[in-house]
Design a protein around this nucleic acid. Structure first.
Lengths: 346, 346
DNA sequence: CTGAAAGCGCTTACAG
DNA sequence: CTGAAAGCGCTTACAG
């Protein structure tokens, strides 16, 4: 039932070679009339070449894999969207994979993707171990790792300067007069989290303040985790007057927890998030946060990936160094000057 | 460099046939020792069969295409997540496609997916025309359409009873004493929207109320669209005391618009959304909305798709009729009794 | 200007 | 218990 190149050849009374040439626009040396006739027939019967057969020969599948922790997190959703847009424009399909921050799932996906002969893999490094990137390097797949920021792992990495983002967020709070600044980390196994934590500590240090380990609690990058973490902070003998949540989802959770305890944001407790998801603008109060322009990140990632795919035979391109994807502080209303009425120890 | 089945055969001193049998666990008639030896070698060299070559023969790619309007809309993000989860569990990869509600993009994606020999396609019907489903039927691809609810188009459809959802939302507002109930539709070209509108009108009628066309304005299913639409409603000579927005994103936009004009939600204006996205709980005020259990929808969709794939030779399965995916009203705080202090005409 | 033939990496009758 | 051969639907030297 389904047409193949052979059928077209037969219908047009030419060889499959000729049809193939027309399909690939290598028509330099084919009679104009022949080309036209073949094109017409293809149109007429609605023939589409089987791209699987094609990729067996060319070795290019025009398909890439995208491994994110969870595409229902708006930050990853927006990243996936941008990546898919660029892929579509360039004729690449993208296979979506959710790792749930699990190295095991990550590795399983990478295996499946490689078996499917994808041309490249983009993945959000969870930084839990280098197994995933090692596997991809070992298999000679083109790949780009997003957000891994470890010096030395310089293959196909688009780094995001999370440390700087953490510094910005914390400094903002310091500038508002806060003395006890908590943070809701994301589980220190994750690179993302570690670097934001570095930025946090660095900002405190720069301001001559000491970091109090009791003020550092762990969430899970999800709303519920932020809520629980904030409750811990609130239960402290000397709760913080401001907290920096390592992503917006947890910041939203933190806001809920604060409100639920009868306090106000930002009058009683200031909160800064991280990611600048679209919802940040619409919640109450609008969230002060850190922005990493997602579209710019997607651009950098896809550029690097395409270059890596091109020269897969040689060495992958080096990391691209934060070009145009500097974190920015987005000031809205969830953080304000420290309220001196509230008793606090420095 | 890359291992093929031939290499394994050579290394083990057997034929490719034998290796292939081991790969496919058809080892009934192969010497135990041979099987073991081959398995070891495969393990040792880390050989993974090229699934592209395999699918050329079997005609199964174990890949499905998912066409959504926009995966950064949380409702679709959650749906995509659930579908990907099930796909992963069943050994299927999912290719993500964003149609932006455009029939043209939809058709282009379907073409590309078919050329890639995907086993099936899931797509959220925008109801703008039947071209997309017609194309899939014409090409004999297994597919499932989500949300299309037109009687007669009974091939591979998981219907969602949007009309009932619209009825529920509107009736809730009526029950709260509201007399002028506006609605923010999604552009009447979309099936989604039409049916919610039917539910809205039906509820009014059932309550013996007349529907006022001035109270029906169009958004675009995005936050900004909801905001603009609400501004229109607010600018009316007799603005509504309650509005039903056809999705949560537009409801959020509407809430912003109401607040920006100095009114309160729900004291001055009640708002009900649709979709029950995760954020609804966290915004201020928490959003009253309609829930269609996403996981149940994803389950129904995948079951139907797998059945369609199985019997692609025969006829597709019929639509599955709302089983377990009935809409529910989720009452939170964005809608309340009509405020009698505010002058209003019935 | 056009075609016959080999081959991509597998699976699957068929044969022994 | 095992293998030689054909074939999936294409592309690509090679030859004319």
């Amino acid at each position: 039932m389904k047409m193949t190149i052979k059928d077209i050849a037969r219908l047009c009374d030419v060889s499959v070679t000729t049809v193939s040439r027309v399909l690939n626009n290598k028509t330099d040396s084919i009679g104009r009339e022949t080309v036209a006739r073949i094109r017409e027939k293809i149109e007429e019967v609605g023939y589409r070449p089987n791209s699987v057969a094609r990729s067996m020969i060319t070795g290019q599948s025009h398909t890439i894999g995208l491994v994110v922790p969870d595409n229902s997190n708006p930050f990853f959703a927006e990243l996936a969207r941008s990546i898919e847009d660029i892929g579509y424009a360039e004729g690449y399909s993208v296979i979506l994979c959710n790792s749930d921050y699990s190295v095991k799932k990550e590795l399983a996906y990478v295996d499946a993707l490689i078996a499917r002969q994808i041309d490249g893999i983009i993945y959000i490094s969870t930084g839990q171990s280098g197994d995933t990137s090692r596997k991809m390097q070992g298999n000679g797949v083109a790949f780009v790792e997003v957000g891994h920021n470890i010096v030395g792992s310089s293959f196909g990495v688009v780094s995001i300067d999370y440390a700087k983002g953490g510094f910005l967020a914390t400094s903002h709070l310091i500038g508002l007069g806060h003395k006890r600044i908590g943070c809701i980390a994301g589980g220190i196994v994750y690179t993302h989290s570690e670097q934001r934590l570095d930025g946090y500590k660095n900002a405190l240090e720069t301001a001559g303040m000491e970091s109090d380990p009791r003020l550092i609690v762990s969430g899970d990058f999800r709303l519920e985790g932020g809520e629980r973490a904030m409750q811990e902070l609130l239960a402290l003998k000397e709760p913080p007057s401001a907290v920096f949540a390592f992503n917006d989802m947890m910041a939203l959770g933190a806001i809920r927890a604060v409100k639920a305890s009868g306090f106000r944001v930002p009058e009683d407790i200031s909160i800064v998030g991280y990611d600048n998801i679209g919802f940040g603008r619409v919640i109450d109060p609008p969230l002060t946060t850190i922005d990493h322009p997602v579209a710019a990140v997607a651009d950098a990632v896809m550029n690097l990936l395409f270059r890596n795919i091109m020269k897969k035979s040689g060495l992958p391109e080096n990391r691209s160094e934060f070009q145009g994807i500097e974190p920015r502080l987005i000031i809205r209303e969830s953080a304000t000057r420290r309220n001196p009425d509230i008793e606090q120890e420095a």
